[in-house]
């Protein structure tokens, strides 16, 4: 029966929309993708991929504790996300261990704590949905939280867009002309924690870092203008989310994994065929035919 629906593209797209949970999943995942995509252009330029990985894994115990205590899970996640970064900074400063090692050991420590807590607190925590995301089973209170956090991040990034760009590009100049670099550093970290919190609902803790770096990396291959990069990053993130959810619906696949795979394929496409920076440098080909 399902196979029949494939005969028309129209029903491929519209059929899932008849389900309430699918409409909600598509909308919420697009919103989350847009937020992560926006932030992604800053993170990839700043070189914070590993930091994104660290923060997103470190929120695990926060989510578990919040669930157990009946608090908004974003609050717990946020505290542990920022806490992990503070701890990374502290250990790095007070020891001779190199930064990437510190990052690796702190986030795995936090993540392990989360897993141990889940096994101890035998409440109705769905480990699977935390680890792999559950965009199809998102609750109403989660929807409200997600919308609130998403708007907050988008507003913050929009207001400080130019300062953050300068901070990523040349923090020394920023400091020299009296811009508060300390504030921008923590602003970006705060946005990172918040984006990780909303992102994990779509694709889960393990894969949320993909939402934070892949769209930016894709966009980086396609343009030399920062504003365009942001737009492309957001669009590719949204498109991947939609593709991922549809594909997972029709083929009964894990949704989070499908979304991230869609992002990866879009990146690979850009990697191969980007006009200027792709492997096949299509631009040169066109120029040759002129």
């Amino acid at each position: 029966m399902e196979l029949c629906s494939f005969l028309t593209l129209d029903s491929f797209i519209t059929d899932p929309l008849t389900h309430e949970f699918m409409r909600k999943a598509l909308l919420m995942s697009s919103l989350v993708a847009a937020v992560c995509g926006f932030l992604s252009s800053f993170l990839t330029l700043k070189g914070w991929a590993l930091m994104g990985d660290a923060v997103s894994h470190s929120v695990m115990p926060g989510v578990v504790v919040a669930y157990a205590l009946g608090l908004p899970f974003s609050l717990g996640a946020f505290i542990f996300g920022v806490g992990s970064v503070a701890l990374i900074g502290f250990i790095k400063q007070k020891s001779r261990v190199k930064e990437d090692t510190v990052i690796g050991l702190v986030f795995t420590g936090f993540f392990a704590l989360g897993i141990v807590l889940v096994s101890k607190i035998k409440s109705n925590i769905d480990l699977h949905s935390i680890l792999f995301g559950s965009p199809l089973g998102i609750s109403l209170s989660d929807v409200k939280q997600t919308i609130f956090i998403s708007l907050l991040v988008v507003i913050l990034l929009s207001i400080f867009r130019k300062d953050l760009m300068l901070y990523c590009f040349d923090p020394r100049h920023a400091k020299t002309v009296g811009i508060n670099v300390f504030f921008l550093h923590y602003l970006l970290l705060t946005c990172l924690s918040l984006a990780a919190v909303v992102g994990l609902q779509s694709v889960g803790i393990i894969l949320v870092v993909a939402m934070l770096i892949t769209p930016g990396a894709t966009a980086y291959l396609l343009t030399d203008k920062f504003d365009n990069m942001t737009v492309i990053s957001v669009l590719s993130a949204i498109i991947s989310s939609l593709i991922g959810i549809y594909v997972s619906f029709w083929f009964d696949l894990e949704t989070g994994g499908s979304i991230v795979l869609a992002q990866t394929f879009i990146f690979l496409f850009a990697f191969l065929f980007a006009p200027r920076y792709g492997i096949f440098k299509l631009r040169k080909l066109f120029d040759g035919y002129k």
């Binding site: 330029l45 760009m165 990523c168 590009f169 040349d170 020394r172 980086y220 343009t223 030399d224 203008k225 920062f226 365009n228 990069m229």
Partner: peptide
């Protein structure tokens, strides 16, 4: 000292 690949004019 600067990232020459930064997308900026």
């Amino acid at each position: 000292g600067i990232d020459s690949q930064f997308p900026i004019s």
